[in-house]
Computed example of a mutant assay.
Amino acid sequence: MITADSLKQEYMDWMNKQIKIHDNEDFIEIQTPFVDMHHDYISLIFTKLNNSFKLSDDGYIIDELDQMGVSLNQKGKRYDFFEMTLKTFGINFSKSTGELYVEFKSLREFPERQHRLIQCILKVIDMLLTTREKTISFFTEDIENFFIENNVLYNEGPSYMGKSSVSQVFDFALPKSKKSYPKLIKAVNKPSAQSYKDPLFSFIDIQDFKSDHEFLVLANDTETKISDKFIEPFNNYNIKVLRWTDRKNWVDNLKVI
């Protein structure tokens, strides 16, 4: 007969088999049975402080965010999500070390604190597992904030029916000024050798109908070096590629004067 106690025992037996704890000189590493976005087991670091204990992810989550080009240095949707997640699970964040951590006075608090930290890590990992479209939205959010700060007039998300009879969506449209044509902008978060295809097709598909427009690509080179194979196809169609890290030098050219 299956009882609540037998189910509880089955779960505890599984946990005891899955969790692995390794002693080190200054800390204890706890390998949990929960996996990250790479399907690696999530490990936590347990340390003894002067009058308390500390459980930490050793900066793993923030490091993964940085490697994916997701910055938490500026206020915005991603930072709000991150901050809200920390508050929900009562987890601390160290800006100096990048650690997610929790401190407690008694070892009796350890199981509950570990459970909360793991839940927080899994929730933040959801940010890392965003689709390409959501990753792009983070970059377009940065562009939008930059335009607002620098008084660049824009419309967000315009779409036009192309020659292919498919609606082509652009990230931004900038109005005409006395000195320049109206502009259509595509944002590319990871300008690799292959990522030129979709934005280039969008421009080609509407060029007959928008011949009075200038076409621009804003390429995020914060973490990824822009490949020459990415730039060359756009150059062949007289489409400018603007580097995000060089934005202070080209922003004045986008203003309506």
Rank of each mutant, 00 (worst) to 15 (best):
E112M: 09
T130H: 03
N238A: 13
F209M: 10
K134S: 06
V188E: 04
D198P: 00
D66L: 09
L65T: 00
R108V: 10
R108D: 11
L107D: 03
D58N: 14
P182V: 13
E133I: 07
S202W: 01
R113G: 01
F27C: 13
Y154L: 11
T130E: 06
F147Y: 08
L242E: 07
T140F: 04
E64Y: 03
V152S: 03
N16H: 11
T97L: 12
N16E: 15
F139A: 06
F146S: 04
L117R: 09
S71G: 07
S180I: 02
K210H: 15
Q67G: 03
N73K: 06
T88P: 01
I19F: 11
M37P: 00
L218N: 00
Y237P: 00
L242F: 11
I42T: 05
P158K: 08
S96M: 05
T135H: 07
L65W: 02
S56Y: 08
S159D: 08
I239K: 06
D66I: 11
D252H: 08
F170K: 10
I45C: 12
D40V: 02
T3C: 11
D80F: 07
N51A: 10
Y154S: 04
L128Y: 01
S137M: 11
S6R: 07
L218K: 01
E29G: 01
G162M: 07
D5G: 09
Y154E: 03
K54I: 03
F104H: 06
H115T: 08
Q31K: 09
M15D: 07
Y181A: 15
D23G: 04
K163A: 11
Y60R: 15
F201Y: 15
E149H: 05
D126H: 08
S165E: 12
V152C: 04
F201N: 04
N73L: 06
